[in-house]
Design a protein around this nucleic acid. Structure first.
Length: 278
DNA sequence: AACCTGCTCAACCGCTGGCGG
DNA sequence: GCCGCCAGCGGTTGAGCAGGT
């Protein structure tokens, strides 16, 4: 009845992405912009389904993605937003421009859930326990919270847009893609670390744009990638941070996030967090 | 050193909603 | 209004790694 899953086609590759595939995907996005994922496999020759390509881009290669552990502020934000919105990871992640919904979701499931459970237990009497659910009888009614959230999102978005127009963000897309160069460069470095020897029997597919060739000759793969796309002038420069408009110098836009911060750290929210020792 | 266990996170799966014909 | 296509989202899985025994 329903249409067949897009990834069931024969010959569609699954599993971890190789740097070569990443490069092909980034070069496609560089030329065409993100979107039209359906066309990616046919236009790039990638043996991946469109969905997989989109996911790889949004979760890993997209410019401006911050990796590594979450800061206290990010953690607090996630806890509050999760309490208000529930498991709307994409909505929560929209407040953390450098984090993906997948990251937020993973962090919640692996760290915060556990942490909160401990704290709940620590509070003792279950009747005193604040239920961590959007359906709980939290002092802020959900409808109100969501309206407020929506309006704050709009305000933040406006502020971000105006800051971009004011030239706080690098113009043009090339700068954004430069940050994905960073991402790939990082990936390639990891790849080299994890792959001390290039497999002599490497499949021919894996030899397209083969970083292995570079590693054999001792060239830094990240530099090679840099030169491949000509983003060298941007690589490593704080002025070229990713996600156009979301950050200007590694810090959240002060105008856009002021409103949000006010809301996030208002009395009700503070009380909420205090209950859990944050 | 070998094995076991728990943790992390990239990637997959299936569903939903928006949009155009 | 219906249908099909597609992008996006949330839940789940599993490979790889780290730490413990």
């Amino acid at each position: 009845m329903g249409r067949p899953p897009c990834c069931d086609e024969i010959g569609v590759k699954k599993g971890p992405w190789t740097p070569e595939e990443d490069i092909m995907l980034v070069s496609f996005v560089q030329e065409n912009g993100p979107g039209n994922w359906r066309a990616v496999p046919s236009k790039t020759g990638l043996k991946r389904c469109s969905k997989s390509c989109r996911l790889r881009w949004t979760n890993y290669l997209r410019p401006g993605i911050k990796r590594g552990s979450f800061t206290d502020d990010e953690e607090k934000m996630i806890i509050q937003l999760q309490a208000l919105l529930g498991n709307k990871w994409a909505a929560i992640a929209s407040y953390l421009p450098e984090r993906t919904d997948n990251d937020v979701k993973n962090y919640w499931n692996t760290h915060l859930k556990k942490k909160l459970r401990k704290l709940e237990i620590g509070l003792g009497d279950p009747s005193n326990t604040v239920e961590f659910s959007p359906r709980s009888s939290h002092s802020i009614s959900r409808g109100l919270s969501e309206r407020r959230l929506q309006s704050d999102m709009n305000t933040a978005e406006d502020a971000l847009l105006s800051s971009e127009n004011a030239g706080h963000s690098p113009p043009g897309q090339a700068f954004s893609y430069a940050s994905s160069t960073e991402n790939i460069a990082r990936l390639l470095k990891d790849w080299v670390k994890k792959t001390p020897k290039v497999d002599e029997n490497q499949s021919s597919d894996d030899q397209i744009l083969t970083p292995g060739v570079q590693s054999k000759s001792g060239i830094d793969l990240s530099e090679a990638f840099e030169s491949l796309f000509g983003f060298g002038q941007c690589y490593g420069s704080s002025s070229c941070s990713g996600l156009s408009g979301s950050v200007s110098d590694g810090e959240p836009d002060p105008n856009g996030f002021a409103v949000l911060e006010n809301w996030l750290f208002d009395d009700q929210a503070k009380g909420y967090l205090t209950n859990f020792g944050f």
